[in-house]
Nucleic acid binder design. Structure first.
Lengths: 190, 190
DNA sequence: AGACTAACAGACAGGTCTGTCTACTGCACC
DNA sequence: GGTGCAGTAGACAGACCTGTCTGTTAGTCT
Protein backbone atom coordinates (compact mmCIF):
# COMPACT_ATOMS: atom_id res chain seq x y z
CA UNK A 1 0.00 0.00 0.00
CA UNK A 2 2.87 2.40 -0.56
CA UNK A 3 3.11 2.65 -4.33
CA UNK A 4 -0.40 4.02 -4.50
CA UNK A 5 -2.13 5.52 -1.49
CA UNK A 6 -5.15 3.55 -0.28
CA UNK A 7 -8.22 4.55 -2.21
CA UNK A 8 -6.14 6.67 -4.54
CA UNK A 9 -7.84 5.28 -7.61
CA UNK A 10 -11.24 5.81 -6.01
CA UNK A 11 -10.41 9.42 -5.25
CA UNK A 12 -9.19 10.04 -8.74
CA UNK A 13 -12.35 8.54 -10.24
CA UNK A 14 -14.59 10.56 -7.96
CA UNK A 15 -12.73 13.81 -8.58
CA UNK A 16 -12.89 13.31 -12.33
CA UNK A 17 -16.56 12.35 -12.19
CA UNK A 18 -17.27 15.43 -10.09
CA UNK A 19 -15.69 17.69 -12.66
CA UNK A 20 -17.21 16.05 -15.73
CA UNK A 21 -20.66 15.37 -14.28
CA UNK A 22 -21.00 18.94 -13.11
CA UNK A 23 -19.92 20.36 -16.45
CA UNK A 24 -22.03 18.15 -18.75
CA UNK A 25 -24.53 16.41 -16.50
CA UNK A 26 -24.17 12.74 -15.53
CA UNK A 27 -26.06 11.59 -18.57
CA UNK A 28 -23.83 13.62 -20.82
CA UNK A 29 -20.68 11.84 -19.72
CA UNK A 30 -19.92 8.22 -20.56
CA UNK A 31 -18.14 5.88 -18.21
CA UNK A 32 -15.41 5.56 -20.82
CA UNK A 33 -14.70 9.28 -20.58
CA UNK A 34 -14.43 9.15 -16.80
CA UNK A 35 -12.03 6.24 -17.15
CA UNK A 36 -9.88 7.93 -19.74
CA UNK A 37 -9.65 11.23 -17.87
CA UNK A 38 -8.92 9.69 -14.50
CA UNK A 39 -6.34 7.29 -15.95
CA UNK A 40 -7.93 4.24 -14.46
CA UNK A 41 -8.93 0.82 -15.73
CA UNK A 42 -12.56 0.08 -16.34
CA UNK A 43 -12.54 -2.85 -13.93
CA UNK A 44 -11.23 -0.56 -11.20
CA UNK A 45 -14.10 1.85 -11.64
CA UNK A 46 -16.68 -0.90 -11.56
CA UNK A 47 -15.01 -2.38 -8.51
CA UNK A 48 -15.43 0.82 -6.50
CA UNK A 49 -18.77 1.78 -8.04
CA UNK A 50 -20.78 -1.29 -9.10
CA UNK A 51 -22.87 0.79 -11.47
CA UNK A 52 -22.84 4.26 -12.95
CA UNK A 53 -25.75 5.17 -10.71
CA UNK A 54 -23.61 4.45 -7.66
CA UNK A 55 -21.00 6.81 -9.03
CA UNK A 56 -23.65 9.47 -9.58
CA UNK A 57 -24.85 9.10 -5.98
CA UNK A 58 -21.29 9.39 -4.70
CA UNK A 59 -20.96 12.51 -6.84
CA UNK A 60 -24.08 13.97 -5.25
CA UNK A 61 -22.71 13.25 -1.78
CA UNK A 62 -19.56 15.12 -2.70
CA UNK A 63 -21.63 18.02 -4.02
CA UNK A 64 -23.67 18.03 -0.82
CA UNK A 65 -20.55 18.30 1.29
CA UNK A 66 -19.11 21.06 -0.87
CA UNK A 67 -22.22 23.20 -1.16
CA UNK A 68 -23.54 22.79 2.36
CA UNK A 69 -20.00 23.40 3.59
CA UNK A 70 -19.77 26.59 1.57
CA UNK A 71 -23.11 27.78 2.94
CA UNK A 72 -22.04 27.20 6.54
CA UNK A 73 -18.65 28.78 5.95
CA UNK A 74 -20.25 31.88 4.42
CA UNK A 75 -22.66 32.13 7.36
CA UNK A 76 -19.81 31.71 9.83
CA UNK A 77 -17.85 34.50 8.19
CA UNK A 78 -20.76 36.88 8.69
CA UNK A 79 -20.20 36.80 12.45
CA UNK A 80 -22.11 35.50 15.44
CA UNK A 81 -25.42 37.23 14.87
CA UNK A 82 -27.90 34.71 13.38
CA UNK A 83 -29.59 37.49 11.41
CA UNK A 84 -26.29 38.40 9.78
CA UNK A 85 -25.59 34.72 9.16
CA UNK A 86 -28.87 34.29 7.29
CA UNK A 87 -27.84 37.09 4.97
CA UNK A 88 -24.19 36.10 4.88
CA UNK A 89 -24.87 32.62 3.57
CA UNK A 90 -25.78 34.23 0.26
CA UNK A 91 -22.11 35.01 -0.17
CA UNK A 92 -21.77 31.32 -0.99
CA UNK A 93 -24.02 32.00 -3.99
CA UNK A 94 -22.06 35.10 -4.95
CA UNK A 95 -18.81 33.18 -4.70
CA UNK A 96 -20.16 30.27 -6.73
CA UNK A 97 -21.24 32.65 -9.51
CA UNK A 98 -17.74 34.03 -9.78
CA UNK A 99 -16.12 30.63 -9.96
CA UNK A 100 -14.93 29.45 -13.35
CA UNK A 101 -17.20 26.78 -14.81
CA UNK A 102 -20.14 27.65 -12.60
CA UNK A 103 -23.16 25.87 -13.97
CA UNK A 104 -25.95 26.15 -11.42
CA UNK A 105 -27.16 23.64 -8.88
CA UNK A 106 -25.74 20.17 -9.43
CA UNK A 107 -28.68 18.62 -7.60
CA UNK A 108 -31.33 20.35 -9.66
CA UNK A 109 -29.45 19.64 -12.86
CA UNK A 110 -29.06 15.98 -12.02
CA UNK A 111 -32.63 15.59 -10.79
CA UNK A 112 -33.85 17.17 -14.03
CA UNK A 113 -32.49 14.25 -16.01
CA UNK A 114 -33.49 11.50 -13.60
CA UNK A 115 -36.84 9.77 -13.39
CA UNK A 116 -39.08 10.72 -10.48
CA UNK A 117 -38.69 8.32 -7.58
CA UNK A 118 -35.16 7.31 -8.46
CA UNK A 119 -32.43 7.20 -5.81
CA UNK A 120 -31.03 10.39 -7.31
CA UNK A 121 -34.33 12.11 -6.67
CA UNK A 122 -34.47 10.90 -3.10
CA UNK A 123 -30.93 12.04 -2.41
CA UNK A 124 -31.73 15.48 -3.79
CA UNK A 125 -34.85 15.86 -1.69
CA UNK A 126 -32.85 14.82 1.36
CA UNK A 127 -30.18 17.41 0.60
CA UNK A 128 -32.72 20.19 0.21
CA UNK A 129 -34.44 19.19 3.44
CA UNK A 130 -31.19 19.18 5.38
CA UNK A 131 -30.31 22.64 4.13
CA UNK A 132 -33.77 24.00 4.87
CA UNK A 133 -33.73 22.50 8.37
CA UNK A 134 -30.44 24.23 9.02
CA UNK A 135 -31.79 27.54 7.72
CA UNK A 136 -34.94 27.09 9.81
CA UNK A 137 -32.84 26.63 12.92
CA UNK A 138 -30.89 29.77 12.08
CA UNK A 139 -34.15 31.67 11.51
CA UNK A 140 -35.45 30.51 14.87
CA UNK A 141 -32.32 31.67 16.63
CA UNK A 142 -32.58 34.96 14.75
CA UNK A 143 -35.95 35.48 16.40
CA UNK A 144 -38.07 35.25 13.28
CA UNK A 145 -41.81 35.37 13.87
CA UNK A 146 -42.33 32.40 11.54
CA UNK A 147 -39.01 30.55 11.19
CA UNK A 148 -40.39 27.98 8.78
CA UNK A 149 -41.73 30.66 6.47
CA UNK A 150 -38.52 32.68 6.53
CA UNK A 151 -36.49 29.55 5.83
CA UNK A 152 -38.78 28.70 2.94
CA UNK A 153 -38.40 32.20 1.54
CA UNK A 154 -34.63 32.17 1.78
CA UNK A 155 -34.24 28.73 0.27
CA UNK A 156 -36.57 29.77 -2.53
CA UNK A 157 -34.21 32.64 -3.25
CA UNK A 158 -31.21 30.36 -3.07
CA UNK A 159 -32.77 27.83 -5.42
CA UNK A 160 -33.82 30.57 -7.79
CA UNK A 161 -30.31 31.97 -7.89
CA UNK A 162 -28.81 28.55 -8.37
CA UNK A 163 -31.30 27.57 -11.04
CA UNK A 164 -30.63 30.61 -13.20
CA UNK A 165 -26.95 29.81 -12.86
CA UNK A 166 -27.42 27.11 -15.47
CA UNK A 167 -27.89 29.88 -17.98
CA UNK A 168 -25.39 32.57 -17.11
CA UNK A 169 -23.20 33.18 -14.11
CA UNK A 170 -24.44 36.71 -13.57
CA UNK A 171 -23.21 38.01 -10.21
CA UNK A 172 -25.99 40.61 -10.34
CA UNK A 173 -28.50 37.81 -9.76
CA UNK A 174 -26.65 36.65 -6.67
CA UNK A 175 -26.31 40.19 -5.36
CA UNK A 176 -30.01 40.80 -5.89
CA UNK A 177 -30.75 37.58 -4.01
CA UNK A 178 -28.62 38.76 -1.12
CA UNK A 179 -30.28 42.18 -1.01
CA UNK A 180 -33.67 40.50 -1.04
CA UNK A 181 -32.60 38.15 1.70
CA UNK A 182 -31.62 41.07 3.90
CA UNK A 183 -34.99 42.70 3.33
CA UNK A 184 -36.85 39.51 4.18
CA UNK A 185 -34.77 38.84 7.28
CA UNK A 186 -35.31 42.36 8.56
CA UNK A 187 -39.04 42.16 7.88
CA UNK A 188 -39.34 38.81 9.65
CA UNK A 189 -37.35 39.75 12.72
CA UNK A 190 -38.82 43.20 13.02
CA UNK B 1 -55.99 17.71 -47.60
CA UNK B 2 -59.19 16.31 -46.23
CA UNK B 3 -58.21 12.88 -45.02
CA UNK B 4 -55.79 14.38 -42.57
CA UNK B 5 -55.91 18.00 -41.59
CA UNK B 6 -52.96 20.08 -42.81
CA UNK B 7 -50.05 19.72 -40.45
CA UNK B 8 -51.92 17.12 -38.47
CA UNK B 9 -48.90 14.85 -38.32
CA UNK B 10 -46.73 17.76 -37.25
CA UNK B 11 -49.14 18.62 -34.46
CA UNK B 12 -49.28 15.04 -33.27
CA UNK B 13 -45.49 14.80 -33.22
CA UNK B 14 -45.14 18.06 -31.33
CA UNK B 15 -47.83 17.19 -28.80
CA UNK B 16 -46.25 13.81 -28.14
CA UNK B 17 -42.79 15.31 -27.90
CA UNK B 18 -44.10 17.94 -25.50
CA UNK B 19 -45.51 15.29 -23.19
CA UNK B 20 -42.55 12.93 -23.33
CA UNK B 21 -39.81 15.55 -23.27
CA UNK B 22 -41.35 17.26 -20.28
CA UNK B 23 -41.75 14.02 -18.36
CA UNK B 24 -38.32 12.50 -19.03
CA UNK B 25 -36.20 15.27 -20.48
CA UNK B 26 -35.35 15.45 -24.18
CA UNK B 27 -32.26 13.35 -23.75
CA UNK B 28 -34.28 10.68 -21.98
CA UNK B 29 -36.61 10.13 -24.91
CA UNK B 30 -35.52 8.55 -28.16
CA UNK B 31 -36.86 9.61 -31.51
CA UNK B 32 -38.22 6.10 -31.94
CA UNK B 33 -40.39 6.55 -28.87
CA UNK B 34 -41.81 9.82 -30.15
CA UNK B 35 -42.59 8.11 -33.44
CA UNK B 36 -44.24 5.12 -31.84
CA UNK B 37 -46.37 7.19 -29.46
CA UNK B 38 -47.47 9.69 -32.05
CA UNK B 39 -48.27 7.00 -34.61
CA UNK B 40 -46.16 8.59 -37.30
CA UNK B 41 -43.54 7.37 -39.73
CA UNK B 42 -39.93 8.18 -39.10
CA UNK B 43 -39.56 9.93 -42.43
CA UNK B 44 -42.48 12.18 -41.54
CA UNK B 45 -40.85 13.30 -38.33
CA UNK B 46 -37.57 14.04 -40.03
CA UNK B 47 -39.38 15.92 -42.77
CA UNK B 48 -40.99 18.33 -40.32
CA UNK B 49 -38.00 18.45 -37.97
CA UNK B 50 -34.70 17.89 -39.79
CA UNK B 51 -32.98 16.87 -36.58
CA UNK B 52 -33.91 16.03 -33.03
CA UNK B 53 -32.51 19.37 -31.91
CA UNK B 54 -35.03 21.12 -34.11
CA UNK B 55 -37.78 19.17 -32.42
CA UNK B 56 -36.41 20.14 -29.03
CA UNK B 57 -36.40 23.82 -30.02
CA UNK B 58 -39.98 23.56 -31.26
CA UNK B 59 -40.82 21.95 -27.92
CA UNK B 60 -39.27 24.87 -26.07
CA UNK B 61 -41.27 27.33 -28.18
CA UNK B 62 -44.42 25.48 -27.21
CA UNK B 63 -43.39 25.57 -23.56
CA UNK B 64 -42.70 29.28 -23.84
CA UNK B 65 -46.16 29.95 -25.21
CA UNK B 66 -47.80 27.81 -22.53
CA UNK B 67 -45.92 29.15 -19.53
CA UNK B 68 -45.77 32.80 -20.51
CA UNK B 69 -49.43 32.55 -21.46
CA UNK B 70 -50.27 31.10 -18.06
CA UNK B 71 -48.36 33.89 -16.34
CA UNK B 72 -50.20 36.61 -18.26
CA UNK B 73 -53.55 34.90 -17.73
CA UNK B 74 -52.94 34.67 -13.99
CA UNK B 75 -51.95 38.34 -13.87
CA UNK B 76 -55.01 39.33 -15.87
CA UNK B 77 -57.28 37.45 -13.48
CA UNK B 78 -55.92 39.46 -10.58
CA UNK B 79 -57.58 42.59 -11.92
CA UNK B 80 -56.40 45.88 -13.36
CA UNK B 81 -54.08 46.99 -10.59
CA UNK B 82 -50.45 46.30 -11.64
CA UNK B 83 -49.51 45.63 -8.03
CA UNK B 84 -52.15 42.94 -7.77
CA UNK B 85 -51.07 41.55 -11.13
CA UNK B 86 -47.49 41.14 -9.93
CA UNK B 87 -48.75 39.05 -7.05
CA UNK B 88 -51.44 37.32 -9.07
CA UNK B 89 -49.03 35.91 -11.62
CA UNK B 90 -47.84 33.55 -8.90
CA UNK B 91 -51.15 31.76 -9.24
CA UNK B 92 -49.67 30.33 -12.43
CA UNK B 93 -47.06 28.67 -10.23
CA UNK B 94 -49.68 27.46 -7.76
CA UNK B 95 -51.75 26.06 -10.61
CA UNK B 96 -48.76 24.34 -12.20
CA UNK B 97 -47.91 22.66 -8.90
CA UNK B 98 -51.37 21.16 -8.68
CA UNK B 99 -51.31 19.82 -12.21
CA UNK B 100 -50.73 16.11 -12.65
CA UNK B 101 -47.25 15.32 -13.89
CA UNK B 102 -45.80 18.67 -12.84
CA UNK B 103 -42.05 18.42 -13.09
CA UNK B 104 -40.63 21.89 -12.69
CA UNK B 105 -39.38 24.30 -15.32
CA UNK B 106 -39.01 22.72 -18.74
CA UNK B 107 -36.46 25.34 -19.74
CA UNK B 108 -34.23 24.83 -16.74
CA UNK B 109 -34.52 21.07 -17.03
CA UNK B 110 -33.62 21.12 -20.71
CA UNK B 111 -30.82 23.63 -20.27
CA UNK B 112 -29.37 21.46 -17.52
CA UNK B 113 -28.72 18.68 -19.99
CA UNK B 114 -27.54 20.87 -22.85
CA UNK B 115 -24.03 22.18 -23.39
CA UNK B 116 -23.43 25.86 -22.70
CA UNK B 117 -23.76 27.96 -25.83
CA UNK B 118 -26.05 25.55 -27.62
CA UNK B 119 -29.22 26.81 -29.34
CA UNK B 120 -31.21 25.35 -26.48
CA UNK B 121 -29.30 27.53 -24.08
CA UNK B 122 -29.84 30.64 -26.16
CA UNK B 123 -33.55 29.96 -26.45
CA UNK B 124 -33.82 29.55 -22.69
CA UNK B 125 -31.98 32.78 -21.97
CA UNK B 126 -34.25 34.54 -24.43
CA UNK B 127 -37.35 33.15 -22.73
CA UNK B 128 -36.18 34.25 -19.31
CA UNK B 129 -35.34 37.71 -20.60
CA UNK B 130 -38.74 38.11 -22.22
CA UNK B 131 -40.49 37.14 -19.01
CA UNK B 132 -38.33 39.44 -16.92
CA UNK B 133 -38.89 42.35 -19.30
CA UNK B 134 -42.63 41.84 -18.99
CA UNK B 135 -42.38 41.73 -15.19
CA UNK B 136 -40.19 44.83 -15.21
CA UNK B 137 -42.79 46.70 -17.20
CA UNK B 138 -45.46 45.60 -14.76
CA UNK B 139 -43.27 46.70 -11.85
CA UNK B 140 -42.76 50.09 -13.44
CA UNK B 141 -46.48 50.55 -13.92
CA UNK B 142 -47.00 49.47 -10.33
CA UNK B 143 -44.86 52.41 -9.28
CA UNK B 144 -41.95 50.44 -7.87
CA UNK B 145 -39.00 52.53 -6.76
CA UNK B 146 -36.60 50.21 -8.57
CA UNK B 147 -38.56 48.27 -11.19
CA UNK B 148 -35.54 46.27 -12.35
CA UNK B 149 -34.75 45.15 -8.84
CA UNK B 150 -38.34 44.19 -8.07
CA UNK B 151 -38.56 42.24 -11.33
CA UNK B 152 -35.33 40.46 -10.52
CA UNK B 153 -36.64 39.57 -7.07
CA UNK B 154 -39.93 38.25 -8.37
CA UNK B 155 -38.37 36.21 -11.16
CA UNK B 156 -35.90 34.80 -8.66
CA UNK B 157 -38.86 33.62 -6.60
CA UNK B 158 -40.56 32.21 -9.68
CA UNK B 159 -37.43 30.35 -10.76
CA UNK B 160 -36.89 29.06 -7.25
CA UNK B 161 -40.43 27.75 -7.08
CA UNK B 162 -40.15 26.18 -10.50
CA UNK B 163 -36.77 24.66 -9.80
CA UNK B 164 -37.89 22.91 -6.64
CA UNK B 165 -40.82 21.59 -8.63
CA UNK B 166 -38.50 19.03 -10.16
CA UNK B 167 -38.40 17.37 -6.76
CA UNK B 168 -41.91 17.53 -5.40
CA UNK B 169 -45.01 19.40 -6.44
CA UNK B 170 -45.54 20.92 -3.02
CA UNK B 171 -48.21 23.64 -3.23
CA UNK B 172 -46.84 25.04 0.03
CA UNK B 173 -43.76 26.18 -1.85
CA UNK B 174 -45.85 28.03 -4.40
CA UNK B 175 -48.00 29.60 -1.71
CA UNK B 176 -44.92 30.73 0.17
CA UNK B 177 -43.59 32.25 -3.03
CA UNK B 178 -46.82 34.15 -3.50
CA UNK B 179 -46.83 35.44 0.06
CA UNK B 180 -43.23 36.53 -0.35
CA UNK B 181 -44.07 38.23 -3.62
CA UNK B 182 -46.79 40.22 -1.94
CA UNK B 183 -44.40 41.33 0.78
CA UNK B 184 -41.80 42.39 -1.76
CA UNK B 185 -44.29 44.23 -3.94
CA UNK B 186 -45.67 46.11 -0.96
CA UNK B 187 -42.20 47.01 0.25
CA UNK B 188 -41.16 48.24 -3.19
CA UNK B 189 -44.25 50.30 -3.88
CA UNK B 190 -44.80 51.26 -0.25
C1' DA C 1 -56.33 9.47 -66.25
C1' DG C 2 -52.08 10.99 -64.64
C1' DA C 3 -48.98 13.75 -61.75
C1' DC C 4 -48.07 15.28 -57.28
C1' DT C 5 -47.99 15.28 -52.31
C1' DA C 6 -48.20 13.62 -47.63
C1' DA C 7 -47.78 10.07 -45.05
C1' DC C 8 -46.88 5.05 -43.64
C1' DA C 9 -43.77 0.94 -42.75
C1' DG C 10 -39.62 -0.61 -41.61
C1' DA C 11 -34.82 -2.09 -42.73
C1' DC C 12 -30.26 -0.41 -42.18
C1' DA C 13 -25.74 1.92 -41.13
C1' DG C 14 -22.69 3.82 -37.91
C1' DG C 15 -21.97 5.28 -33.54
C1' DT C 16 -22.28 5.30 -28.33
C1' DC C 17 -23.51 3.48 -23.97
C1' DT C 18 -23.15 0.28 -19.88
C1' DG C 19 -21.33 -3.56 -17.92
C1' DT C 20 -18.54 -8.16 -18.16
C1' DC C 21 -14.62 -10.82 -18.92
C1' DT C 22 -9.82 -12.39 -19.69
C1' DA C 23 -4.97 -11.75 -19.19
C1' DC C 24 -1.19 -9.34 -17.23
C1' DT C 25 1.77 -6.48 -13.61
C1' DG C 26 3.75 -5.17 -9.33
C1' DC C 27 3.73 -4.76 -4.37
C1' DA C 28 3.06 -6.57 0.52
C1' DC C 29 2.91 -9.87 3.74
C1' DC C 30 3.57 -14.58 5.51
C1' DG D 1 9.32 -18.13 -2.44
C1' DG D 2 4.54 -18.16 -2.74
C1' DT D 3 -0.09 -16.13 -2.19
C1' DG D 4 -3.25 -12.45 -2.43
C1' DC D 5 -4.58 -7.89 -3.61
C1' DA D 6 -5.10 -3.65 -6.31
C1' DG D 7 -4.67 -2.06 -10.41
C1' DT D 8 -3.81 -1.86 -15.91
C1' DA D 9 -5.21 -2.82 -20.67
C1' DG D 10 -8.49 -3.75 -23.75
C1' DA D 11 -11.74 -6.90 -26.22
C1' DC D 12 -16.50 -7.92 -26.25
C1' DA D 13 -21.70 -8.40 -25.91
C1' DG D 14 -26.05 -6.34 -26.14
C1' DA D 15 -28.79 -2.52 -26.06
C1' DC D 16 -30.03 1.93 -27.74
C1' DC D 17 -29.68 6.22 -30.51
C1' DT D 18 -29.83 9.28 -34.59
C1' DG D 19 -30.46 9.76 -39.17
C1' DT D 20 -30.97 7.71 -44.13
C1' DC D 21 -33.06 5.11 -47.53
C1' DT D 22 -36.40 2.18 -50.23
C1' DG D 23 -40.89 1.07 -51.30
C1' DT D 24 -45.96 1.49 -50.69
C1' DT D 25 -50.60 3.72 -50.01
C1' DA D 26 -54.10 7.10 -50.49
C1' DG D 27 -56.00 11.34 -51.48
C1' DT D 28 -55.91 15.93 -54.39
C1' DC D 29 -55.51 18.67 -58.30
C1' DT D 30 -55.25 19.39 -63.30
Amino acid sequence: MSRTAPGSARERILDTAFRLFYAHGPRGVGVDTVIAESGVAKATLYKHFPSKDDLVLAYLDKVDQAWFGALRAAAREAGDDPQEQLVGMFDALVGACRREGYHGCAFINTAAESPTGSPVHARTVEHKNVVRAWVTDLARRAGAAEPELLARQLTLLLDGGLASGVLDADPAVAEAAKRTARALVEAATG
